[in-house]
Amino acid sequence: MTLRVLTVDDSRTILAMLHHTLSNAGFQVLQAEDGKQGLDVLQSQEVDVVITDINMPVMDGIEFIKNVRASGQYQSLPILILTTETSQDKRDQGKAAGGTGWIVKPFDPDKLISVIHRVVH
């Protein structure tokens, strides 16, 4: 079964790199440019795992995660936080909001894939 990954980031560069790495690894990749768009995607698509940035316009990653977890149907959807934060603040906030794990930018492709396999069947 092809796993579907929703990537949420306002940086086209990061979206492109994620898309490249993930689709090469056999994932189907969906994209959104902020949390609001991410929620829209989740409304209409089945997704196996989410990778989201924290700093985004319109709706940031923390709000996005909170909204996903509050929606009821995505209680067990793994959400990975994409972060460059050197302080642990954002990571902790993301976890408190319901984030499953995190990926530190700049990411190593192999590490990215192994992290996804850590949180999704």
Partner: peptide, 14 residues
Amino acid sequence: FRAIHSIKGGAGAF
């Protein structure tokens, strides 16, 4: 903030 953050993020990747 986000603009600088994004510029930094990509710069890190390269």
